[in-house]
């Protein structure tokens, strides 16, 4: 896996677009985390209870155990916020990208857009197998193999000298 990219590895338009992709996903995570943190009534309960597909049982059991639900809520709120910050600032970018992929995979697996499945929570578009969560996961995978944190980000200060 490519760990370290330097300035000249990308053509300028490539770098700009990769950084923009990182910033916009980061922005999305950060805001999702922030709105949950400031809403005292937010809970993942309803979302988890609406789970469908192969892993629905697992997600529903998370919702029905008070203690587990509290942990899930906490990890969601702060996970989203920290991943968002990491992506936006380019700080611990690689870790943030990996955590983002894991978190989004949970969302995707709990709400797979399979044929014949209806969710209580309305969807804003039409999806079959592929939805925006999956696209965001793949976009994060792109960022994993084309990292930019060590070029345009705080990670730049921690990068190893290649000698």
């Amino acid at each position: 896996m490519v760990n370290s990219f330097a300035d000249k590895d990308y053509a300028k338009p490539q770098l700009i677009l990769l950084v923009l992709l990182r910033l916009s996903i980061g922005w999305h995570f950060l805001y999702e985390g922030a709105v949950k943190i400031i809403n005292p009534d937010w809970s993942s309960f309803g979302y988890l209870m609406d789970s469908k597909g192969l892993f629905a049982g697992l997600f529903i059991s998370m919702a029905t155990h008070q203690g587990v639900l509290q942990v899930v809520d906490f990890l969601n709120m702060w996970g989203l916020l920290l991943i968002g910050l990491g992506l936006m600032l380019g700080l611990f970018t690689r870790l943030s990208v990996i955590c983002g992929i894991v978190l989004l995979s949970f969302y995707f697996l709990s709400h797979p857009p399979l044929a014949g499945i209806q969710y209580i929570i309305p969807q804003e578009g039409s999806y079959l197998l592929v939805n925006k969560t999956l696209i965001e996961i793949i976009a994060l995978c792109v960022l994993l193999v084309f990292p930019t944190g060590q070029i345009a980000g705080i990670d730049r200060f921690f990068r190893k000298k290649r000698d």
């Binding site: 990219f5 000249k8 590895d9 950084v19 290649r162 000698d163």
Partner: peptide, 26 residues
Amino acid sequence: KDKNNKKELTRPKGISRREVIKGLST
């Protein structure tokens, strides 16, 4: 990556102003 390694070796030590700007560019 390999091609760039040589260029890295020639870069001056310490953090330049340019480096700081790039690191904090976002």
